[in-house]
């Protein structure tokens, strides 16, 4: 500790839109912080709320979920389930003693490389300001 804080942000990206958008950000050589650690999933709706809680407990400083825009889901309606689950999860974060601002859901399409980079930059900035995830220190599981 005491060194510069290099946050770790887990980014769950759906295979069809956001992961492709992230690739496009790279192909376009758009720069964003190394804090972003991508994890590919088939659909944002594969992201079980337990994954998010687990990611926090395991030390992630922030978690980003990237899915297709409403109406664009490759699986018809997966992202609607994600949206609903996300809303509920955020609402219980307080009672779990987790900071809900460390969680972000973004709709990023396959052509939105710049948006992916922007979201990563903004979110990393925010997490940088919030400091390290306190949860991990308090965890005795």
């Amino acid at each position: 500790m005491g060194k510069t804080f290099n946050p770790k942000i887990t980014a769950f990206l759906c295979k069809w839109c956001s992961y492709t958008g992230a690739d496009l950000a790279g192909t376009s050589r758009l720069q964003y912080p190394t804090a972003i650690i991508p994890i590919k999933v088939m659909c944002s709706s594969r992201v079980d709320p337990v994954f998010l809680i687990r990611a926090f407990l395991k030390g992630a400083d922030g978690v980003l979920i990237g899915g297709c825009h409403p109406g664009d889901c490759h699986y018809e309606s997966g992202n609607y389930h994600t949206r609903r689950r996300f809303a509920i999860l955020q609402s219980i974060f307080d009672s779990l003693n987790l900071e809900k601002d460390r969680l972000r859901l973004s709709w990023i399409s396959a052509s939105e490389g710049p948006k992916f980079a922007r979201v990563c930059n903004e979110f990393t900035d925010k997490i940088q300001k919030m400091g390290p995830n306190p949860t991990r220190k308090n965890m005795f599981i």
Partner: peptide, 10 residues
Amino acid sequence: RDQCSWAHMD
């Protein structure tokens, strides 16, 4: 590459 070296060139 796409999500690392190209995105963090500096």
